[in-house]
Design a protein around this nucleic acid. Structure first.
Lengths: 155, 155
DNA sequence: CATGCTGTTGCGAGCGCACTGCAGCTGTGG
DNA sequence: CCACAGCTGCAGTGCGCTCGCAACAGCATG
């Protein structure tokens, strides 16, 4: 239920919405910021900073990875973006559209399944009952084998 | 049920047992190897490479971190050691005593709860039923808040 | 529309963790 | 005791991410 640390879920629909949210929280709407947000929106899925930077650099002006990192951090702080760490390797970012999401990732093929807090609640309840831990898979997903990789294993 | 990738569970009881296992799998029992294994055994809990190196360097001869990494890798390959990644930060290593273990880690205080595969099976079953993923928490734990930190939050 | 404050950029440097290459050394089976 | 893998020790590399700082540019304000 709770969103990323100390942030409401804005659920913006247009880029201008997002820019408004940024301004209202005391941030500026700079060119790199616009580009990053737009790039993330058009990517649609989880992307790494390098992927995002590469994609956005070819399409327009050069873009520094440190700037991308800083912007993603800012965007995440106001709730427009979230990111997840799937096993080793770099973090993956996405637009925070609507409520919170929890993740399952495949250790073999890298597939990431995104589910809502409600869908995963029974799992969390099971864990809480048995071990007393209040689990969150918003930032560090459940890792394992997806169905396809299990079937590939069976063969 | 399955142990770390492609390895039986040796369940050694003494250091000499462990050395025998090493030799039988075509590895040598060198001084650093002995020291690392002994250090890990006497640590009792999950330790990082840096902690282990520091602890073992003061007690004896200098020890290179790359050697420690390589030895831990070898020891893990023969099933004497395992390691887990709790959130950000370095991996944590422990003696692989007996069957496989799965982990829950607290994002706030860093506490790590170690449970058996059997204990966590109901959780895995729930996940498999609902999402088709065969989850493993042997290498990447369930992250969340431990009981103590939840109570601290409530207050 | 001009001004100034302050958040942001761009660039280099740096950090933590982990891994690699290689020459020289050493445990081990014969 | 010997020879030959396997291992050590050291320096160096790579990746993901962060920081410092001077120059720049949104944005509120007059």
């Amino acid at each position: 239920m709770a969103q990323a640390p100390g942030t409401p879920a804005p659920a913006f629909t247009t880029l201008d919405d997002a820019f408004g949210i940024l301004r209202r929280s005391g941030h500026r709407v700079s060119a790199p910021r616009r580009i990053v947000l737009q790039g993330l929106l058009s990517a649609g899925t989880l992307v790494t900073v390098d992927e995002l930077t590469a994609r956005l650099t070819t399409e327009s002006t050069p873009l520094d990875t440190s700037v991308v990192y800083r912007n993603l951090e800012t965007l995440e702080a106001v709730g427009l973006v979230r990111h997840v760490h799937c096993g080793h390797g770099p973090g993956r970012y996405a637009i925070a559209a609507g409520g919170d999401r929890e993740y399952l990732a495949c250790e073999r093929c890298g597939a990431v399944l995104e589910v809502t807090g409600d869908e995963i609640e029974p799992v969390r309840r099971e864990i809480l009952q048995r071990f007393g831990y209040r689990a969150r898979f918003t930032h560090f997903p459940i890792l394992g084998l997806c169905r396809a990789c299990q079937e590939r294993d069976a063969a």
